[in-house]
Design a protein around this nucleic acid. Structure first.
Length: 273
DNA sequence: GGCTGGCCCTGTACGC
DNA sequence: TGCGTACAGGGCCAGC
């Protein structure tokens, strides 16, 4: 499940390989989620950027190719020429003028490809309303506090909406709340708690970036290699295992359709509502 | 306008 | 061994 560290790892790999190449042919799965991938045909790649969990490929015709990896999306590059070898889960491919082919595979089809006019994200409402980048100086504890206290939703649900901050998914949210010792099911927080959560978010993401991402099942970089942050996790997926801080067994629950792991001792009792 | 819950989608794990 | 079911979850959207 690619989140910011995984998407950034892929971005760095693609940005080192694609700029300067022109797309001479393309194919897309007929699903509306992928069909517009062929609209990039004829354009040259200028740069590969990232916003939250979205990859933004700048094209030289004033358009952007946007990719969201969903749960199982992955890019790979076939170096040799000839007919692209699409697998059963290939959802799009682009052949470049140097003979290489970029493939996008997505087993569960939660991903998405779109080609839009540069900066026009109205067809992607989450991207259009994305919060600040976590390493942007404008993302301060106070900004986070105000984004979270202005809602009645659970703090984690609001965080996963991508509006308080961009790029945090289930794994890094659980890690951040654990590090901050804030219960994710709370619906309010103090400025002091927001300061700890702000630090926890950045700490969790930096650990993920330094480890090349978290590979629990599907995530692979463009080079086919997984990340190693799964060995650093303190909370996510550790239900029933001892808390690395207090030794109590971690608990898990489903709130708003998302499984959440937490330490009832360190992060406090579950709010009644 | 904010919030909730259902849906999409398929491999894996597990029980019978 | 084979079948059925539950589960994983990011983003979108309908309904309240």
């Amino acid at each position: 499940m690619p989140e910011l560290p995984e998407v950034e790892t892929i971005r760095r790999q693609l940005d080192a390989m694609l700029p300067g190449s022109r797309i001479v042919a393309a194919w897309a799965h007929p699903s509306a989620k992928f069909a517009s991938a062929v609209d990039a045909t004829g354009a040259a790649v200028m740069a590969v950027r990232r916003r939250g969990k979205y990859l933004l490929v700048d094209l030289d015709n004033g358009r952007e190719l946007i990719a969201h990896l969903g749960m199982t999306g992955a890019f790979s590059i076939a170096e040799h020429g000839g007919t692209p070898v699409a697998g059963p889960y290939t959802r799009a491919w682009w052949t470049l003028d140097d003979g290489r082919t970029v493939l996008f595979d997505d087993t569960r089809r939660f991903g998405r490809i779109a080609v839009v006019d540069a900066g026009q994200y109205r067809s992607l409402p989450t991207l259009d309303a994305l919060g600040p980048e976590p390493f942007d100086p404008m993302f301060t504890p106070k900004v986070l506090w105000e984004a979270l206290r202005g809602t009645k939703r659970r703090l984690k649900t609001q965080l996963l909406s991508q509006r308080p901050v961009a790029g945090v998914g289930n794994i890094y949210a659980d890690e951040a709340f654990w590090a901050a010792q804030v219960h994710p099911a709370r619906r309010s927080l103090t400025l002091r708690q927001a300061e700890r959560l702000h630090a926890g978010i950045k700490q969790a993401l930096v650990r993920g970036l330094d480890a090349g991402g978290t590979t629990l099942r599907d995530y692979r970089g463009v080079d086919g290699r997984g990340g190693e942050n799964q060995f650093n996790l303190d909370c996510y997926g550790r239900r029933g295992l001892p808390c690395h801080r207090c030794g109590d067994l971690l608990e898990a629950a489903v709130w708003d359709g998302r499984t959440t792991t937490y330490c009832a001792q360190c992060q406090g009792p579950t709010p009644r509502r």
